[in-house]
Design a protein around this nucleic acid. Structure first.
Lengths: 213, 213
DNA sequence: TTGCGAAGTTAGCAACGCTAACATATGTTA
DNA sequence: TAACATATGTTAGCGTTGCTAACTTCGCAA
């Protein structure tokens, strides 16, 4: 009875690790209500502490959200790393797999995804969040470089990576925000990513010509 | 002095058209602070009325935001219609122009754009908002159909339109949310849209084959 | 043992969304 | 023109939220 399987480990005056417990609660609440409707009070109820307790661990609401975002970036980075490592099948391109992993993460954790890439500039100003994001993106650039071959430049890889990221991010955003649904269009997002990847990866040497004929 | 060029037209007890004035104030505030940080109180200050006045015109905060979103969809629809009508030059594809107009709208009105396509499901549940959105998207489908030629099916046009919309939406989102900046990548969004459109529109007859070889 | 710092608590302020009750302007009708 | 009905404003106030101040309790180390 004393050790219930809740977020709160101890029954005493002190919590144990309220910081981690709060981040976990925040991520759950963000998924339930969306980042906009998240309130510290509810996270406190969930963790079983008073509403003033979080301020011993975090500066303010934004700081709590930043930590949740960082936790999300770590998850995404790992998911994409796993996807890029799973090249056993070989039939489908590694880059496509990474794109699918990106979309899958967004669909599985829409609230966290919106928090990570959403409008709040403060999230990205956090240096640790930014660093984790960089790690994530550089993995993609590297794989794109591998695909382009040893004769390709770093700038080429970056440009193509941006192209792919842009599409995949659009697919993830429109999917989780129900915009495909609002447009009354049934979309298989993973198939969409596969199709677009193939087209954007194809003939990359020819698209560097003059903008228009 | 009595008719200042503010949102408030009259100095008397009654406002005149507080509904429109509030929507205008909301759209300004949303651009200044983002949809998340918007408060009715500030919109009231801006319109020169008490904080209870809005409830004579709108049901609640969400209702106000819905009206702002609808106003945004009307603007976007018009911007894209203008872009598709400006086919005088002819050198660049009409569809590309529409995509650029989409991105330009997002960059010019990032707050409204996020409101329109953002996480709040209530915005899209509003039937008039939804209808305006449909109008907007069907314009694109029609142009894509024109591009594909008379032998193409409606489903083909829809599928290709989704592909294009997805990319353009991704570009707009990543640009206004400063995610390109966070990744330390300078991106010319309009050029990006042009490149992607060219690739996604090219060889559309070949991409309908089997998924993988 | 004692004392100090970390990590909780309660109490309270200001801002916000929203409602209720009241006040005023507008315009139709007798 | 007077009077009423309605639309549209007002003030006052409730509950929630983010955050701070002041106090309390716990754990650890001298």
């Amino acid at each position: 009875m004393t050790t219930k399987k809740t977020i709160r480990p101890k029954d005493g005056y002190h919590h144990g690790d309220l910081g981690k417990a709060l981040v976990a609660a925040v991520r759950r609440l963000i998924e339930r209500d969306g980042p906009a409707n998240f309130s510290i009070s509810e996270a406190c109820k969930m963790a079983g502490v008073s509403t003033a307790a979080p301020y011993k661990h975090f500066a303010d609401k934004q700081d709590i959200l930043n930590h949740a975002a960082r936790s999300g970036f770590e998850d995404l980075t790992q998911a994409m790393a796993v996807a890029s490592a799973e090249r056993s099948q070989g039939q489908v391109h590694v880059i496509t797999q990474m794109g699918k992993a990106y979309v899958r993460f967004a669909l599985d954790h829409p609230g966290t995804f919106r928090l990570m890439f959403g409008s709040s500039p403060n999230v990205k100003d956090d240096p640790t969040v930014n660093a984790t994001g960089h790690t994530c993106f550089s993995t993609l650039i590297q794989e794109v470089g591998n695909h382009l071959g040893p004769g390709s430049s770093d700038a080429q890889a970056k440009q193509l990576a941006i192209l792919l990221w842009t599409f995949v991010h659009g697919a993830a955003s429109l999917a989780i925000d129900k915009d495909y649904d609002a447009a009354d269009i049934p979309v298989d997002v993973e198939a969409l990513v596969e199709q677009a990847s193939r087209q954007l990866l194809a003939r990359h040497d020819q698209v560097l010509g003059p903008p228009d004929g």
